[in-house]
Design a binder for these strands. Structure first.
Lengths: 162, 162
DNA sequence: TTTATTTATGTAGTTAACTACGTAAATTTG
DNA sequence: CAAATTTACGTAGTTAACTACATAAATAAA
């Protein structure tokens, strides 16, 4: 075992990132193998618009958990691919409302069976004693209760007094 | 719950990345709160050199799981901070051998109590029914047995025949 | 009803990883 | 032992996220 793996929870952020990367790259291969021109990074936007139909830029950014500038960059790319379209909100001229285009909806229809494959393969991959998906959900819940930093604070205080 | 969270394993890569980011940012706050000029991204290099003493660039890159160019960029930064030093390998002129500097070793000594705090706070954070650290290790093991893509392949084949 | 504040979007520039490619030293092969 | 291959390191350029700041529309306040 290498040193970072042996460092355990100290390097947990690095380990999470690495695992995320690995899964994303394999996901990309799966889309390719199934003959679809689709990049995993598009998934959050496309999936949310598929499920929620119409959203503004900031609403969408909040849903996918990205900053709004990052979201705008993704949206530009997706508009160039003609997978989404946008129109001004009549009621509020500041807002730009986003929807899947016909091409986007067609791609989603093609992707749904692929998503089934991805779900099946992922479920297989993470079928272990400690379930990764549940662990993520549980830790996110813990985070919401009290952040990592907040949990460390009292321990810091004790040290600084000593 | 938002749409991405509800997408479950389909969006697991996004969820992992988000959690990694959150933990890394809080880690940065902890170093700051304890008065240390240390960035979480330096951790893998510093920690590995602390544990392994002397390594070449590529050996180090493999240990921390980054590409060698990314590692070189980190090393430049750390040399500028005077936390590490490097010298040519007499036995193999291609190699550059890396070590912690005196300043680097001193910083490690200061950081060790902080690492204890981080370990304690993280352990507290991930003390849930499904343990995140164990889940990561288990999934990495599963990955080694057979990649995510390899697991998907037979499912793709069936679909393409149908 | 001006003026100030907030909200929504957008632009510019930064960051931290990557891949692709190039060069030089070491090793292997014909 | 000369030529080909591999290994180690480095540079250049890309990518996908971010923060900070700017502008315009909507809303609140004086």
């Amino acid at each position: 075992m290498n040193v970072i793996d042996a460092a355990g929870v100290l390097a947990i952020s690095t380990r999470l990132q690495r695992l995320s990367d690995r899964i994303r790259k394999d996901g990309q291969e799966i889309y390719k193998a199934m003959g679809l021109a689709f990049e995993p990074k598009w998934f959050p936007v496309i999936y949310v618009l598929h499920r929620r139909d119409t959203l503004s830029v900031v609403e969408l950014a909040n849903e996918i958990g990205y900053s709004h500038p990052s979201t705008i960059t993704l949206l530009k790319e997706l508009e160039k691919e003609k997978l989404i379209r946008s129109k001004k909100d009549k009621a509020d001229e500041r807002k730009r409302l986003l929807q899947l285009s016909a091409k986007g909806r067609h791609l989603v229809a093609q992707m749904e069976p692929v998503w089934d494959v991805i779900v099946a393969a992922t479920t297989d991959l993470i079928r272990t004693q400690n379930n990764l998906m549940l662990a993520i959900e549980e830790v996110e819940e813990q985070f919401q209760r009290q952040s990592f930093f907040q949990r460390a604070l009292p321990l810091i205080a004790v040290r600084n007094e000593a």
